[in-house]
Design a binder for these strands. Structure first.
Lengths: 243, 243
DNA sequence: GAGTGGTCTAGACCACGGT
DNA sequence: CCGTGGTCTAGACCACTCC
């Protein structure tokens, strides 16, 4: 019972690419042919092909066709930019099954007023109320990640420490507050601060990876600013783009 | 003289968003209205809106409208995933104007046969011939980046050390060999190796950022595998996604 | 010249949000 | 209920690649 045609076509083609029905470096059948095969219009086929391209499986060349890209042997991937919305998402990643236990410890939970310094960091407006939350993430008992977050208070009604301890995004969903629209992030490597050395199991390393993330609600408001600081040698992030 | 309608609409709307004709947290006019205004069909408007969304400027909510997202105060960005195709691209980034001088030093240049170890790293096929190139990148005389690259030899005709020293991508363009189709990359933070400490100006830091990159040609072949290893505190990468 | 993907039109029906 | 964006059809013309 197909709900979305382009999504069915996407799934089918993806499957056939994996099964080497269309081997790497070959082209897929033309868009017209695919349209005939799936009994849809060319536009709908094109939509499916666009998804495949943004996945990095194929690449369209005008005048030649849609080329199947050679596969890459993937390493274990723990972090991806996608699952950073909610630490809880990590549990669902199949590559992560060697992780037995994930837990979170809330180190700080305070209400602050956004001053100039915080405004500069978070892009919130000075004078706003915000929650500042520092959370330590434990992987099989190892403190590998610490999150420094600011959340706009006005959008969280009366969230408590317990809510923050489990999952803030769960709290938002349960109370039907709003939906998450988008996130912008930057990745850097920085020298470890004293605080990092204090709370993280960082051994003798003196740097951390830093993922700085801005999260938007579906009403266009900046809602969250989080700095995720993580111990080296444990995480990787994946990305794909075409030209 | 418009060549691509959706691109004109994109530019116009982007400009108007920046000028706060449509302020943050407000919605744009409906797609029908925009279609009427630009004298195109709704599909063409939608195409422009999709670009704006993938830029992170707006977000579409069914039943409500296309919401303008609040802007973020951007930090200086040196690296972006986009300009990693070719070190030379860095020079063009306006944020980088404080860098006076960029230069490259070729530390190694050898022809190798892909064995099992290299196959595992690069996803090339065992038995292929490849160039192994190690290049040191100097920023105002500071060795901040070292690139470890493998290139499939069969696609480079008879490239010389001099070609590699200036720009391999320039060489490919000049000789009209092929086009670059896509790139897949992963970002990690790793302990610095002895080699890193040897060639990089890393001071007392013992970690490096690592950008691992696979590059495809427009015929679907994996062509390049590069590990970019960089000194902390100097680079950042930006990313945006919507849900 | 034949075949490919890229752009665009002019309609249609649906699901969802706010009233 | 009405207006919004989401999906889809059935055409058309163009630019490019390859033979």
């Amino acid at each position: 019972m197909p709900k979305k045609l382009y999504s069915d076509i996407y799934d089918t083609l993806k499957d056939e690419i994996n099964k080497q029905v269309y081997p790497p470096r070959n082209t897929l059948p033309g868009e017209e042919d695919l349209a005939a095969r799936f009994d849809v219009t060319r536009n709908t086929v094109r939509r499916a092909l666009k998804e495949l391209q943004s996945d990095g499986l194929v690449y369209a060349v005008k005048g030649r066709g849609v080329v199947v890209l050679e596969p890459i042997r993937d390493d274990k991937v723990v972090f991806t930019a996608d699952n950073n919305i909610g630490f809880e998402g990590l549990k669902k990643f199949p590559q992560n099954k060697f992780i037995q236990e994930l837990s979170t410890e809330v180190l700080s939970f305070e209400e602050v007023e956004v001053d100039e310094r915080i405004e500069k960091i978070t892009s919130f407006n000075a004078g706003d109320k915000a929650f500042y939350i520092e959370r330590l993430r434990l992987f099989d008992g190892n403190a590998l990640v610490v999150d420094n977050s600011y959340f706009r208070k006005s959008m969280l009604k009366d969230m408590t420490v317990e809510d923050a301890k489990s999952s803030i995004y769960q709290y938002i969903r349960d109370n039907n507050l709003f939906k998450i629209a988008a996130e912008r992030s930057t990745t850097t490597v920085e020298s470890a601060t004293k605080r990092d050395m204090q709370v993280l199991d960082i051994d003798d390393m003196n740097c951390v990876g830093v993922l700085t993330k801005f999260v938007y609600t579906d009403t266009g408001s900046l809602f969250e600013h989080t700095q995720t600081r993580y111990v080296p040698n444990n995480f990787s992030m994946v990305d794909f783009k075409s030209f």
